[in-house]
Amino acid sequence: MDRTDTPFTCQDVSERLIDYHYDELPATERGRVARHLARCGDCARAYCALHADLTALGWSDDTARPGTDLHQRLRGAVERRFRRSLWQRLSLAVRRPIPVYQALAFAVLVLLALWFALPARPLSSTNAALQPSDRQVLIENYDAADLMALSPNTL
């Protein structure tokens, strides 16, 4: 039975060194290998040797490096194949969703513009704006009987 808290033996670690190097072990096993390597000099040396051999495999990467202009050449070819036409770009610009904050900022600007653009109006209520002759008409049309139709609670 392979309990996760049981320390690995040197044999266990030896079988897992390659997968450890390539980070292909499950997290629990990786931790157990790391703990073993921290306290076992022989296994640590074996791992260093493996690491050196595998790293040396990448040595030729220095020679196997693309020329500096390859990126630009390939990018040019990609642009010719994938660049949007003018019509596509216009269509996308029209369909592009507007972020909420932009919409809010636009709304505030419109309101401010309206505030300054419209002529100033008096703050008074309707009655205050009435001429003296209009007040007279209101008083004459007043009928106290209308109040009787209302319930006593309302009064």
Partner: peptide, 19 residues
């Protein structure tokens, strides 16, 4: 049509693939 996406793909793979 976003060509900048190619640059990122190139950055991720050019060394490995060319090697």
């Amino acid at each position: 049509g976003d060509i900048s996406a190619f640059d990122e793909l190139y950055r991720r793979y050019h060394r490995r693939l060319f090697g």
